[in-house]
């Protein structure tokens, strides 16, 4: 019996390491392990080849956790064209030290983690990626699932066609249940903006926080994470960021759970993105001026006005 599955401090979690070569007990497919790709809360993902094709293989300390993920992945597979996450290729057992251990193999998505991609390619990609991400979420939600643990680390931008895909389905939860797994920085409850019930608005909240996160560097982000955390603090960042400011309305609406679907938020973002692209040259100049001087005051005032408007119609908790 592995009683201490999550000894995370002194001892690494008891995630079995894969032998360099193995084959499944039931389906008899054989895998060559190339390297470890990463570790999540439930297990480790390895890059392997099977029949000459690259696959991502996940194993975990407890088979049941792995099988639960498969259960979710399978039900999302129905929309094959939707490209929410990786395709599921194989579910099987392998023997490690004489004990059966469940694993699954999925399509290997070659690409970059979203935050790394933005760092390399620039913040003008953020809104484009957000629009794509919201489309993926919309599909997931329509299948009755909430992603739960939404964060840049769980979003991949494929190298070939720059498509956003979700990875790590450990947090995916049936609508209405309690979110299975989350990360504090993107968790609605941690920001005192609601509970952890799996709702469309839970994912949209995380998405909005993620967008803000992608615009600031790591240091600003971590150094400013004071207690207690409140969305007002995120609004300060939005107000002071040229890149985020145009998106203030959809972001605020997401913070306050005002969207009924990811599609709605996507449409709002897309409209702003289009407008910005058309008006790009002139707007940028204005944005520069805004940070200081009278122009800044004017637009800050506008911002405050939009806040008040929202506060009035939306939520009681604004000044909390």
């Amino acid at each position: 019996m592995e009683a201490c599955v999550t000894m995370s401090f002194k001892q690494p979690p008891v995630i079995p390491s894969l032998p360099r070569q193995f084959h499944g007990k039931w389906n008899k497919k054989s895998y060559h392990v190339l390297r470890e790709l990463g570790r999540g809360a439930n297990g480790a993902v390895y890059l392997a080849t099977q029949g000459g094709v690259k696959r991502a293989v996940k194993v975990g300390g407890e088979s049941i956790d792995i099988l639960m993920e498969v259960n979710v992945l399978k039900s999302v597979q129905q929309g094959r064209d939707s490209q929410v996450g990786p395709l599921l290729c194989d579910v099987d057992d392998l023997m490690i030290d004489g004990k059966p251990c469940a694993f699954y193999a999925m399509e290997y998505l070659e690409g970059e983690q979203l935050d790394r991609y933005i760092r390399q390619s620039g913040t003008e990609w953020v809104a484009v990626m957000m629009v794509q991400l919201l489309a993926r979420l919309d599909v997931l939600h329509k299948h009755g699932w909430v992603f739960g643990d939404l964060k840049p680390e769980n979003v991949i931008v494929t190298r070939a066609d720059k498509q956003v895909r979700l990875i790590d389905f450990g947090g995916v939860t049936k609508l209405g249940n309690a979110v299975r797994q989350f990360t504090e920085e993107y968790d609605r409850a941690y920001w005192h903006a609601g509970d952890r019930r799996a709702e469309v608005s839970y994912d949209l909240f995380s998405a909005a926080v993620m967008m803000v996160r992608l615009f600031v560097d790591r240091q600003t982000w971590t150094s400013s994470l004071g207690e207690p955390r409140q969305t007002v603090w995120l609004c300060d960042i939005i107000r002071n960021s040229d890149g985020l400011y145009p998106y203030r309305v959809p972001l605020l609406k997401a913070f306050h759970g005002k969207y009924a679907s990811a599609g709605e938020m996507r449409a709002d973002m897309l409209a702003i993105l289009r407008e910005l692209t058309v008006a790009a040259p002139r707007q940028q100049k204005q944005a520069r001026k805004r940070t200081s001087g009278a122009g800044g005051m004017g637009i800050s005032g506008l911002f405050v006005a939009s806040l008040l408007l929202l506060a009035g119609t939306l939520y009681y908790a604004w000044f909390m």
């Binding site: 201490c4 999550t6 000894m7 995370s8 797994q181 989350f182 941690y190």
Partner: peptide
């Protein structure tokens, strides 16, 4: 049951995770 050893800042999340598992 299960156990974990964490820093104070990780406590909240660990409580939820451990209980669920």
């Amino acid at each position: 049951g299960l156990c974990d050893i964490v820093y104070p800042q990780q406590l909240a999340q660990t409580v939820q995770m451990l209980t669920r598992k």
